[in-house]
Write a protein that binds this DNA or RNA. Structure first.
Length: 496
DNA sequence: CGGCATACG
DNA sequence: CGTA
DNA sequence: GCCG
């Protein structure tokens, strides 16, 4: 362990009574030798703490020597502590615990030296290390990335999304995910990639993705992507899956029957569309057209009016892409609740009923709450999935929209259909719900992937530390909105 | 070489 | 299997 | 396909 040439130090495995220094004979904890740093502590407080510790059976050294195992400082912020320690010419500083005063006070309270935890450590601010790697590394998890609203790498991400979709159609989920992740990483960059070399330190980019990027940088297009785009099957599947209620399996089924267009499908007497698909075809033009922010706000007003009939204490918050700062979306997401706890249970049912009465409800799929406090570890963020929600298609009158509707060419109607999602948590779960409905799909996936991986890591390390510790703050999740501002939507706290 | 998010209807 |  |  450590060899101390100068200091006379008969401490190791000393036989009882052999030690000549009397207070060390009385000391209970021979393996822990504390040194209190006077700086910021003051002489009188240092002297008081020294007496206190010794009275409780701790060994406190007056001078900093190789005998010291625990250095305690009140100055945890200081950048001067470590340089000072290094100047003391100890034989091996790396084996010494450099600790916050909290370790000392914890130990005094317990009447024994408490195990050293990360929270006690005063880290050395290495002057060289940040120089070597000052570049903020991009995380492989979307939930740890700040993603700008502008996509500076659309030429690549469009290509990756074509490849991802093609793998999805071919049921190769792993590769599909890989290309979606690569696209997500490039979308998060506040700069445009101008050479493959610039992607050196980026995660989720490997041989294949970089080859595609190189091709695009060289020729402005990718041969592989072009081939997919010109493929009839791929085109048809893309067309079919663009219908609300039609996924890859149904699209494939229709394609294999030789169907190539919507009219082909609709002409089949033996094809029975489900409720979702019927609405999908009926409102196809409207719900595949972008929804503007003004339209989203107009939908909000309609929900607001409906909910205020039921309760005056309603809270309504726009989430989804619009909350991330987007100007257009494919649907409108609102979180709606009431401050009267418990009353949120039937809120959506009442809203749906009201919309129906007004003739605004074109489609509705309601899912009651499955949130059970007694059954679920309540603060696990997975709980955000369990609240009452509904997927709607609403009739939106143009007269309600500031600046008018997003309209197709030659559309003479004064209204359009809009996809609307509502979720209704109890008011005290509002934050969880915002977390669950503000992120992109990749964000939500990676939130769970990150939580699982990091939690396992914590559990693995857990035994080494304090078994009574139950709260781990994993980090702060932020979502960029626009022009450098961002929301802090949640701090992940996992109970282990 | 296995894992890749999760829940509901 | 489709939705989020 | 990329990562641990």
């Amino acid at each position: 362990m450590f060899h101390a040439p100068a200091a006379p130090r008969p401490r190791k495995r000393s036989k009882p009574g052999e030690d000549s220094v009397s207070r060390r004979e009385e000391a209970t904890f021979q393996d822990v030798r504390i040194f209190l740093v006077e700086r910021k502590m003051g002489r009188s407080r240092r002297s008081f703490l020294t007496q206190l510790a010794r009275s409780k059976g701790f060994v406190v050294e007056d001078i900093l020597s190789d005998a010291v195992t625990h250095v305690v400082s009140e100055d945890s912020q200081s950048s001067s502590l470590w340089p000072w320690l290094k100047s003391r010419s100890l034989s091996d500083l790396s084996t010494v615990n450099v600790l916050d005063i909290s370790w000392f006070t914890d130990s005094m309270r317990e009447g024994r030296p408490v195990p050293v935890e990360t929270k006690h450590l005063i880290q050395d601010i290495l002057p060289e290390a940040p120089k070597a790697a000052p570049v903020n590394k991009v995380s492989q998890y979307a939930c740890q990335r700040r993603t700008t609203i502008e996509n500076n790498n659309r030429i690549f991400t469009d290509a990756f999304e074509v490849l991802a979709e093609n793998y999805e159609f071919n049921e190769i989920e792993g590769r599909c995910l890989a290309f979606r992740r690569a696209a997500s990483v490039l979308k998060s960059l506040p700069w445009a990639v101008r050479s493959v070399g610039a992607t050196q330190d980026l995660p989720c980019l490997g041989e294949h993705t970089k080859a595609v990027m190189k091709e695009i940088l060289q020729y402005g297009r990718s041969f592989e992507v072009e081939k997919i785009l010109s493929d009839e099957r791929c085109q048809t599947l893309k067309l079919f899956t663009s219908v609300f209620g039609v996924g890859p399996k149904t699209a494939e089924k229709w394609y294999r029957r030789g169907l190539r267009s919507f009219s082909d499908v609709l002409a089949q007497p033996d094809i029975h569309l489900n409720r979702m698909q019927q609405s999908g075809f009926l409102h196809y033009g409207d719900i595949s057209r972008a929804v503007s922010k003004a339209e989203a706000r107009a939908v909000g007003n309609i929900i607001d009016e409906a909910v205020h009939v039921i309760t005056p204490n309603a809270i309504l918050a726009l989430t989804g892409g619009f909350r991330r700062g987007k100007d257009f979306g494919h649907d409108v997401d609102y979180v709606v609740t009431t401050t009267e706890l418990g009353k949120e249970e039937n809120l959506l049912i009442s809203i749906i009923e009201s919309l129906k009465k007004q003739g605004l409800l074109l489609f509705s799929d309601y899912q009651a709450s499955t949130f059970d406090l007694s059954k679920l570890p309540s603060h696990r963020f997975e709980a955000m999935d369990h609240f009452a929600k509904c997927f709607l298609i609403l009739r939106l009158e143009g007269s309600r929209v500031e600046g008018g509707l997003q309209r197709a060419q030659g559309d003479g109607r004064g209204w359009r259909a809009v996809r609307v999602d509502l979720v209704s948590p109890p008011a005290d779960r509002f934050a969880f719900t915002m977390l669950g409905w503000t992120g992109s799909r990749m964000f939500e996936r990676d939130l769970r992937r990150f939580a699982r991986l990091e939690r396992r890591m914590l559990l693995d390390n857990h035994a080494l530390f304090d078994k009574t510790k139950v709260l781990f703050i994993l980090g702060c999740t932020k979502i960029f909105t626009h022009k450098g501002s961002h929301y802090t939507i949640f701090t992940l706290v996992l109970r282990v």
